[in-house]
Design a binder for these strands. Sequence first.
DNA 1: TTTGTTCGTACGGTGTACTAACAAACATGT
DNA 2: ACATGTTTGTTAGTACACCGTACGAACAAA
Lengths: 379, 379
Amino acid sequence: MLRPSAKSLPEHARGRNRSLVLQTLYRSGTLSRADLARATGLTRVTISDLVADLLAENLVVEVGQRDESRPGKPATMLDINRGGFQIIGIDLSDYAVFRGAVLDLDGVVLQRAEVPLDGAVGVDASAKVVALAERLVGAASLPLLGIGVGSPGVVDLAGTVLSAPNLGWPSGGSSGEPLQATLAAATGLPVIVANDANAAALAEHSFGAALSDMMLVKVGHGVGAGLIIGGTALVGSRFAAGEIGHVVVGTDGGAACACGKHGCLETWLATPRLDAALAATDDGPDGAAERTAILRRAGERLGIALAPVVGALDLAEVVLSGPVELLDGPLAEAAIETLRMRTMAEFHGDLSLRMTALGQDIVMRGAAAMVLSGQLGVS
Amino acid sequence: MLRPSAKSLPEHARGRNRSLVLQTLYRSGTLSRADLARATGLTRVTISDLVADLLAENLVVEVGQRDESRPGKPATMLDINRGGFQIIGIDLSDYAVFRGAVLDLDGVVLQRAEVPLDGAVGVDASAKVVALAERLVGAASLPLLGIGVGSPGVVDLAGTVLSAPNLGWPSGGSSGEPLQATLAAATGLPVIVANDANAAALAEHSFGAALSDMMLVKVGHGVGAGLIIGGTALVGSRFAAGEIGHVVVGTDGGAACACGKHGCLETWLATPRLDAALAATDDGPDGAAERTAILRRAGERLGIALAPVVGALDLAEVVLSGPVELLDGPLAEAAIETLRMRTMAEFHGDLSLRMTALGQDIVMRGAAAMVLSGQLGVS
DNA sequence: TTTGTTCGTACGGTGTACTAACAAACATGT
DNA sequence: ACATGTTTGTTAGTACACCGTACGAACAAA
């Protein structure tokens, strides 16, 4: 049963058209009003009206006349005010440090900052996040559009972390760590908090070359995933979509996991386990072959775990994020081979699996993309 | 990258509010205009205006004054014109017969019809569908809202069957069997064609007790699934969402499948395989234990295949559809046990798996729900 | 210079939903 | 019996969003 959905007012339509203009400008770079009218299907009159609003809010600027020489009155070109705002993105997914950055509207990192975690949990961890955010707010050289945070664990739509064991959240027996509310109160800025893997998936979708049905698998101390379905992030019935780290893989046992089960995806794929297994090999050519075998086995397990998901969701693309030296090679090759072998070639023949091109900054940039989407409607 | 999304006009808002009124009325039964205003958040004035349109179209009727005695002017009650229209639902998922029915707006089957398939494929199969539809159109006693069809295979959003090997579609080297266009041309009615398992999932969501994040697994000659995410059906990047029948399950081999692989979900779960395995047991108590073991093994495989999907999508509910005597018992029990053992209890503890209560008519009723949703916006 | 094109804006009209106000019809308290 | 208060559905007027038309400005090409 659906809950009674919301009524729809004309002003909502206005808001969507406003976002449509911003989004078109964001993607295409500079356009004239007439260009926008052609691109959106709205009339020049309506575009002029919307653009007037956006100019007044300083979100859009006029950038002179069109260079190219054409018949008719020369067009005055518009663009998103790219030099007018900045965004703060924060990545809490590393087990040792909180990373953050000031980014521009195109998701380019302008200035970095980080705070060592030093084993802080609960309220201490929250305090470190707030301190990092405030430092970054001070470091910004332009008005800020907002703060985006990618946190490990389960995060609800209000930006409350419901469960992040490694960070000791929620702390003190509360039902959730209200990170979004805390940061908003501390900085007075719009704040969006979401799961780290979901943020990464959004980054890949916004700044990478990702299609609109995609899964991003983030491998680190744990293993998580973010899903983009039809261009929007999947949240799940309990905000736990993408939590595949503790799904058991295969029917042949496996190592014991911290969660109490055996053969979880994390026991095959998490970086500490992989590093330990690789370190136990020797230096000679035999060792090299063994290391390749270890990585291939991990990739196979990933393929085994993903096959039902790829089949059920009819995904076109799987993207990996994490240590390149571990993932990008035998592991990724074995994963895509396994995936192809275990799904229906007829449907998923053009399935692709690749590393992200966004590197270490993917969560921060995804956090920035969330702000962009939340404040401007650009996605 | 998103393609440029569509502009949003005030009349679209109007359409949504119109659907909102219909939907509220559809779910709650009879309501007054003032009740509708309270339920939707729109004003009485706007509701009156919308209702006037719907009365003129005969989609809504006034059904006298409120029985209950209250202060104030007595309310004139409204309802969807349940006695004013009928729907045709057609189920092509059985390997031997095409089934169809005339249904009322509540999805109740009023009159049935079926056509033996007799091995027809390609254009012959299409002709049988058209004949069945025309017979049902003649059998309807009220104006028809439209025709819904649940077909096996991959069906695109235009109702063209891209691939249904058992029915020989697409026929004659064409790229797809345009079933929706063919039926619309033959009957002059609105037609919606979709995948059978997706239709079943929609039925469970509309007429059953399903939550808004759900997976329906349909077991028959093949195995397919339909997914409801956030209240809407998932289609997939190639319209092949839910095609899990040929995903390999487990890491210990398995029987050979018609698709060329080994250990596909269908080899464990499809009814012909199960029936054959069960028939090979003897009649005594040893045979009964063996039959239970066979069913449990099948259930375990289902659980193994679904665990990554349930984990990745954070599903709250899995529903089974198919032969009750096979599914509802050891198989379902083993499936939910396996599912719980292989996913994170913390997140998915309240995961449930159950048989559908809609029985054999589930696809036809889902097809009717598609028409209801397409024509009235009721979902 | 003339012609045709393109751009951006001004004006008026239509559609949507809102607030305010009101008459009708009822229950209830005195 | 009668006044009072409540609820319903409608009318009238307003605000907003978008559209079509029309127009002046600015340019290229002939």
